[in-house]
């Protein structure tokens, strides 16, 4: 590293070599060992500005700011919501099945009655016909 490069880095990154780009630090250390008084003078000049910059503190935020921000985060999805959808589908299917079974049962229940009525009517007709024949025979 040249002395010019050392000064350029101190002007850009300040008087603390630990804050310089990592790839430059080893070469800087060699230069500091070779000419410590010059290097310390350069670093002290940059350090003066670092100290001035450090006196400007950032605002901390008004009370309650963090809470207000936390309140804007999306609400966590409740655990039951995770299985509600498939469970809901299951309930729907079960309901549909139950409805189908009930309808089927009703139809089943209605069907014999209809058949019975038909049979009764047929038997009545047949018996009347038979009756007629019987009457004729009689």
């Amino acid at each position: 590293m040249t002395p010019e490069r050392f000064e350029t880095l101190s002007e850009a990154y300040g008087g603390d070599v630990a804050r310089w780009p990592a790839v430059e630090r080893e070469a800087a250390a060699i230069l500091m060992t070779a000419d410590p008084i010059w290097a310390q003078t350069v670093l002290a000049r940059a350090g003066d500005l670092d100290a001035a910059l450090a006196s400007y503190h950032a605002p901390g935020g008004t009370p309650g700011l963090a809470d207000r921000i936390v309140a804007t985060a999306p609400r966590p999805r409740a655990r039951w919501v995770g299985w509600l959808a498939p469970a809901g589908m299951g309930v729907g299917l079960a309901t549909a099945c139950a409805a189908g079974v009930l309808l089927g049962a009703q139809l089943q229940a209605a069907a014999p009655a209809t058949n019975a009525s038909d049979a009764d009517a047929l038997m009545t007709a047949v018996s009347e016909d038979v009756g007629l024949y019987l009457d004729d025979d009689a």
């Binding site: 001035a52 910059l53 006196s55 400007y56 503190h57 950032a58 605002p59 901390g60």
Partner: peptide, 11 residues
């Protein structure tokens, strides 16, 4: 919010 007059000058 500044720590000092220096802080204000820096800002």
């Amino acid at each position: 919010l500044f720590a000092s007059d220096t802080g204000r000058r820096v800002a």
